[in-house]
Each structure stands twice: as structure tokens, then as C-alpha cells.
Simulated assay, not measured.
Amino acid sequence: MLDRRSLLKLTAAGAIAAAALVPATAGAAEPPKPAKLTMNVYAGPFEANMRKAVIAPFEADTGIKVELVPSAPPLAKLQAQGASPELDILIAGIVENLIAGQQGLIVKLDPDNIPELKDIYDIAKTPDGVAVNFSALGLAYDKRQWPTPPTSWFDLASDKTPGKIVVRQPDAQNTVAWMAIMAKEMNGTWPEKPEDYKKVGELLTKNLKPRLAAITTNTATTRAGFTNAGAGLAVWTDSQVAAFANESKLPLEFVIPKEGGVMIATTAMVTRTPNKYWAEKLIGYMLRPEAQKIFALNGYYAPSNKTVVVPDDVAAKMVYGQAKIDTLLRMPWDKITPINQQISETFYEAVN
């Protein structure tokens, strides 16, 4: 039988052994707080929502100041800065996310530092980024010219399409996306080479060119296509259509074509910053339900957090909920982006 002294020794040894099994990270202290975090941001409503819904509560809770730099994704600048990036967080689209990852400008996110990731739709996650919110790219149409709504991307190049058409200049993820979808439908598989777009170019020359009112460069010129050029059909996002219809009172509606819509995401990434922990915490604030709801109510930005609840009238104007999200295509950007320039050339040769 063990005496009291032996029993105490055994108990102490057991406690030490048990303590050794506790993960080293449990209760670990947070890393030092930087005085400031810096991130780029899209100017306009997105920036205003970001300041109200994310930056203000983050600064109040942590004491860390956040500097917002209104600009397009500065990939070339980040590449030149190497291991000393001026940005802690990069805000960009899906294609820029792919390029930044390939160039080693961003790092993988740590789910332990961003518990909100567990509530994010799968389509909104990448290995090194997460969509803060997103829109669907589809067709905007004027109901006065389209008593029966358009149903297909091929309505952009149909001899039965009424009125004029507005499309965006080829860029990272707009015109090249719907051209890729057309090529897939015409060829049977996703296009991988410039010549895979030949049939699309021929169709655009035949049916889009005679109806093309404008090739737009931004939101303002797309709006002008409807107000000044009398367009009846355009390629646009659901959030932009909802906002413009509300402001202009034009009878505009949005539809996702039967072939599928394209997710236009606003993706948050962490650069090679020494402030990775706090940058990830800031991204977590972007993913909180209360922040995502503000974006939805004040700009029709679809929440990437599946727990967010919005009014029915707002939900109807965005890709909200799993059923609608399932209508979005998983685009093969790894096949599209490398030949982006050649796709653009095919487009311009077809419509000029």
C-alpha cells in the first residue's frame, strides 16, 4: 500500500505529465500590436461600408489604427516591395488572388486566427484568401425592350435580340468570362487555347457587332449605355443593377443565364507582412455577420457568411443563400488568365 508521501509524489508526477499534453498554443499570448495596419480598398460605397462596418469596431476593440488606401490591387508594387510590403491586407478580385498567389505576394490564412471562416460558403474560400462579399455577373435588361426576359449568354449574340447591347471592355474577369462560357458551350469543354475562341469570335461578328451600342470601361459608362445610348441588354452584376435601378427608376432587371453566372468576388488576402496575426483578425471582422449585413443593406453586396439574415426584398436582388450560389460557375481562371490578352484580341477583332 502507498503511504501518504508516495501518493503525493505520484499525484504530482501525474499532474506534470497531464500538463505536458496541453498544446503549447493554449492560452498563448497575442503577438505585440502594431500601431497601424494598411490595406487597399475600392473607393466609393465599398470604402464607406468598410469604414463603418469593419474599421470602426476593429479600431475601437484593438486600439490598432487602420489606414485605407483607395486604389486598384497594386500587384506590381507589391512585387517590387518583396518581403517589405506596405500593405498588410490586399483587397482584390479572384483573378488577382490567383496571380498574387503564383507570385508569392500573399500567404495562406490560418483558420485558428479567423474562426469566422467556418461560416463562409465554400465557393468564397481560396487557399490564401476569402471573399468578403461578392456579386453575380449576368445580364441586365430593360423590361420595356424585353417583355420576356433573356435566358442565355448567347442572347448577347443572337439575331433575335431586340435593341442595342452594352458590354464591358475585356478585363480580368468580365468579358473574358462570358466568352469562355460561350466557348465551353460551343466546343463541349472549357477552352484552353486562343484558337478555342474562334467560333465565339465569328458569332460576335455576325450578331453582336451590329447591335453593339458601346464598349464600356466602368460602372459610369455602363449606366450611360442605358440612359444615353438606349441599350436594352448589358453584361453587369446584380448589385450594380439593383443600385442603378433604385437610383434611376429605370425598369431594369437582372438575370443569371441558364449556363450559369460568374462570381465577382471582393477577396481579402494577407501579404508577407510581419503583422499576419492582426491582419487575419481584421479579416475576421470583415466576415462577421453584423458587418456583412451592413454591406448587404447599403450596396447589395451578397454576404459570404452563410449565417447572415437580410430582408426578403434585399435578398431578392443578390445572390443570397446556397440555392442561388449554386447557380454560379466555378470558372477555370487558371486556363483563362494566361491567355487573357489573346481573348481580348479575339473580342476586338470580332466587334471592330
Rank of each mutant, 00 (worst) to 15 (best):
E86H: 13
E86T: 12
D88E: 08
I91T: 02
A92E: 08
G93K: 10
V95W: 13
V95C: 14
N97A: 15
L98N: 14
I99S: 05
A100Q: 08
G101R: 14
G101Q: 14
Q102M: 15
Q102I: 11
Q103R: 15
Q103F: 10
G104P: 11
L105Q: 08
L105T: 05
L105M: 09
I106G: 13
I106Q: 13
V107T: 15
K108W: 15
L109D: 06
L109W: 07
D110V: 11
P111A: 09
N113R: 10
I114S: 06
I114R: 05
P115N: 01
E116A: 14
K118W: 09
D119A: 00
D119S: 03
D119G: 05
I120L: 07
I120M: 05
Y121K: 00
D122M: 10
D122Y: 09
A124D: 03
K125T: 00
K125F: 09
K125I: 08
T126R: 14
P127W: 12
D128H: 15
V130F: 08
A131K: 04
V132I: 05
V132E: 09
N133I: 01
N133L: 05
F134S: 04
F134H: 00
S135W: 02
A136C: 13
L137H: 06
G138H: 14
L139G: 09
L139F: 11
A140P: 08
A140H: 12
Y141I: 04
Y141K: 02
Y141V: 06
K143Q: 13
K143H: 06
K143E: 14
K143F: 05
R144C: 07
W146D: 00
W146P: 08
P150Y: 03
T151M: 11
T151P: 01
S152V: 05
S152D: 12
S152E: 10
S152L: 10
F154P: 09
D155N: 09
D155P: 02
L156R: 04
A157P: 07
S158I: 06
K160D: 14
K160N: 14
T161F: 00
T161E: 07
P162D: 07
P162A: 01
G163A: 05
V166R: 08
V167Q: 00
R168P: 07
Q169H: 12
Q169F: 05
P170M: 04
P170F: 02
D171R: 15
Q173H: 07
Q173E: 09
Q173G: 12
N174K: 09
T175S: 10
T175R: 00
V176G: 12
A177E: 09
I181L: 12
M182D: 10
A183G: 10
K184I: 03
K184L: 05
E185D: 15
E185W: 13
M186R: 09
M186D: 03
G188H: 12
G188T: 11
G188V: 12
G188M: 13
G188W: 11
T189W: 04
T189L: 12
T189M: 13
W190H: 07
P191W: 10
P191L: 12
P191I: 01
K193Y: 00
K193Q: 00
P194H: 09
E195A: 07
D196F: 08
Y197K: 00
K198L: 06
K198V: 08
K198W: 00
V200Y: 04
V200P: 03
V200T: 07
G201H: 01
G201C: 03
L203D: 08
L203W: 10
L204R: 02
L204N: 03
K206E: 15
K206W: 13
K206L: 15
N207W: 03
